[in-house]
């Protein structure tokens, strides 16, 4: 089950606080290329913040993150964000694709244009190349026939798949998903999860914050359990669900036993 590969993501002592308190406390983790990692944990424990730090939607306070050779790091004593740091963050965002819980497709553009926009604007691809690429990605997520539609006319599942295609168009080294299915009606969840399984089969490195324990257990290489801003436990799905080492993990998973069994 576990694949062989060099660590593509290296996180060391990642700390992040907001005005009302510390949200991430010395988070460290290595993730190898090609891994599919699920992150679970109670609400408010810092899962989203962790993901957002990885692609610099939030700036970490201290620690360092290296993804595909790009490093952002702070010691926590800097007065302000300096230029090299911001440039590293910009590069990080180009390498790391992210899909949010709520659909944020651009409503004024067609599905195709949504997928083409960033390659055109950021990577300065030619329109032909960008279109060809976009159509290929839309076909991959099963939306070949929806290229000309506007986001408002898509179902939630279709919209999330389009969002994935849009993120893939930038050729990211890593994909992050923050509860991509939790706003969806149950019957639409699988079509989105299936896309991630397909990507996993192609060797994409992915981190998914999810409440779908069955998916986490069956599809991911391992599961990370977070609580109180810390990584409490990290293990193979079967192990974690049957014989968790930590009391907090056991307590959390109690709510999900029926779902996973």
């Amino acid at each position: 089950m576990t694949k062989v590969g060099a660590p593509l993501i290296h996180v060391e002592n990642l700390c992040k606080s907001f005005e009302d308190g510390e949200v991430l406390k010395n988070v460290s983790i290595d993730i190898r290329e090609g891994d599919l990692v699920s992150v679970i944990g109670p609400s408010g424990c810092g899962k989203s913040t962790f993901l957002r730090c990885l692609n610099c939607m939030e700036y970490l306070d201290s620690g360092n993150i290296t993804i595909a050779g790009v490093t952002v790091s702070r010691t926590g004593t800097e007065e302000h964000l300096d230029r090299p740091f911001l440039e590293a963050c910009a590069q990080m965002r180009k390498n790391v694709g992210m899909v949010f819980q709520s659909v944020n497709l651009f409503p004024h553009k067609t599905v195709l244009d949504n997928v083409m926009l960033a390659p055109l604007v950021v990577k300065k691809e030619s329109p032909d190349q960008a279109r060809e690429n976009a159509l290929r990605l839309l076909a991959k997520v099963g939306l070949k026939d929806f290229a000309a539609r506007y986001p408002a006319t898509l179902s939630g599942g279709q919209a999330q798949r389009a969002s994935i295609a849009r993120a893939l168009a930038m050729n990211p080294k890593v994909m992050l998903y923050d509860e991509p299915t939790s706003a969806l009606d149950p019957e639409l969840v699988n079509e989105v999860l299936q896309v991630m399984k397909d990507l996993d089969a192609e060797g994409m490195t992915q981190i998914i914050v999810t409440h779908h324990m069955r998916f986490a257990r069956n599809a991911s290489d391992y599961i990370v359990f977070m609580d109180g801003g810390e990584i409490v436990e990290k293990d193979d799905g079967d192990v974690l669900f049957t014989t968790p080492k930590n009391e907090r993990t056991r307590e959390f998973l109690r709510h999900f036993t029926e779902e996973v069994a």
Binding site: Q101, S102, V103, N104, P107, H108, Y150, P151, A152, T153, L154, S155, G156, A159, Q160, A183, L184, D185, L188
Partner: peptide, 19 residues
């Protein structure tokens, strides 16, 4: 029409609240 279109499940409504 262009901005709000038809309401989609999990669409704009929750979107705004969350963000």
């Amino acid at each position: 029409v262009a901005v709000h279109g038809g309401a989609t499940p999990g669409g704009t409504g929750r979107n705004g609240k969350y963000s």
